[in-house]
Amino acid sequence: MTRLKVGIAGCGLVTQVEHLPNLINLPKLFEVVAIADPSATVREALSARHGLRAFESATEMMTAGLDAIVIATPDSYHADLAVAALERGLHVFSEKPLAYNTADIARIIAARDKAGRVMQVGYMKRFDPAYLMLCDLLRTVDGPLRAVTVDVLDSGSDPFVAHHDMVVGTDVPKALIEEGAARRAAQVKVALGTDADPLVTRGFSGPYSSSLVHDLNVVQGLLDAAGAKMGKPVGAAFIAGNSGGYLSAKLDPTDGLVTMTWMATPRLAYYCERISMVFDDRNFELRFPSPYLNHHLTELIERRANGLALEEIRHRPSYAEPFVEELKAWHAAIVDGAPVVNTAEQAATDMGLFATFAKLALAK
């Protein structure tokens, strides 16, 4: 089995809790050889802990004899790093959002096609066993889909990662932090076609692009399985000082409705993420745990009408970890030519929809 030499760009929470340990725990598939992070505290500690080469910049790390790179930097750097890596002939796995605007994603697609390399986006929920089972169930349902609802209460990651021995760096240069903020504002401006005030930029880059993007992507997959698609957007708002977001769209062809709401609850150590799909005589509900609670089951509840009675089935398909399964799929796409599950084209669809919703919110 081909073992790929991998470098990781960005060593924050998702790298330390998920990508780095998961790659190390797949030794037949990957050899992690290098990391890059602007914090000397972080990169030196992780380098010593895991015996890895450490670089200050991701572009410098790309010269370290890699086959592939995981990009987990701040979001505004994803596109430029993905293009640079592809141009060097590296396979790329990028955390979501792939970019804030579709123009940057188009650059990535062009670089991918020219290089002939694999480009996969980190939508790990597409590998959740409960999601995959629901897709199979949806393909058997007769009758129109009436509604899809998504609601998320997000306390943030702290309650669910505090037990990890994470290294936190406070030594990132101030100029680099300011550069990242300026890049984010400029890229959101391209997405929205206008200058956005700081609250709108925060809403688009936060609730929409960092959290609801997972749910939008999952809903797109579920709609495909159900033979439906998202139609005309009908409502959107940035709420609660832009620490929350709401959007809604018609379903095509049933004239049903999709609604999604996300709210930050930093003072409440509680995470709730639910997706519900309603048919005439059946309802399916996914209940996701905090993404950083590894091997915790996503609940899949199926409810069926039986006259005036109700039958409820709780499915438990597997304890497989989505963060691990997406890395296995990335390897299979690179080595075996398996289809890429989460493509840049899917990311472009997601971010194009978010831009449409954000413009609708701004118009009110």
Rank of each mutant, 00 (worst) to 15 (best):
V219C: 02
I334D: 01
D142S: 10
N101F: 05
V33E: 15
L212D: 00
D151K: 05
R303A: 03
A236P: 00
H295E: 10
R112P: 01
S205L: 04
V340E: 01
V121L: 06
N22G: 10
Y208L: 07
P173T: 04
A40D: 13
P207E: 15
S57R: 14
P289T: 07
I108E: 01
V42H: 02
F238S: 07
Y131G: 00
D252H: 14
M263W: 10
V200I: 12
D165Q: 08
H78K: 08
T73M: 05
A225D: 02
A348D: 13
V168N: 15
G89L: 02
L86E: 05
A58S: 09
E18G: 15
L310P: 07
A54F: 06
P198M: 10
R304N: 11
K96H: 12
H331F: 05
E299P: 02
A249R: 04
Y100Q: 00
L176Q: 13
V168L: 14
L29T: 05
P339I: 03
N306G: 13
D75L: 08
R287T: 12
D255M: 08
H78Q: 14
A110C: 09
R43N: 02
I24W: 09
A305P: 07
P97M: 06
T2Q: 14
V14Q: 09
V118D: 11
P289R: 12
F160P: 00
F127M: 07
W262C: 08
G10C: 06
G143C: 02
L66Q: 01
Y271N: 11
V168C: 12
V167G: 03
L52D: 01
L20D: 03
L353Q: 13
M351W: 13
L353F: 15
C135H: 05
H214L: 03
V167H: 00
V32K: 01
H91Q: 05
T349Q: 14
P289G: 10
K364W: 15
K28H: 12
T254I: 06
M119I: 05
M277Y: 03
L327S: 01
K5S: 08
D281T: 15
A347H: 02
R316D: 14
L362M: 08
D195W: 11
A85I: 03
F30T: 07
K250G: 00
R316I: 09
G241Q: 11
M260A: 09
A309Y: 13
P253V: 08
G65S: 07
V17K: 04
A309N: 12
N294S: 08
G203R: 02
T356S: 13
H50K: 07
D80A: 13
A185D: 14
H214I: 04
E285K: 06
I35T: 11
D224K: 14
D151A: 06
P27G: 01
V324G: 02
V83E: 04
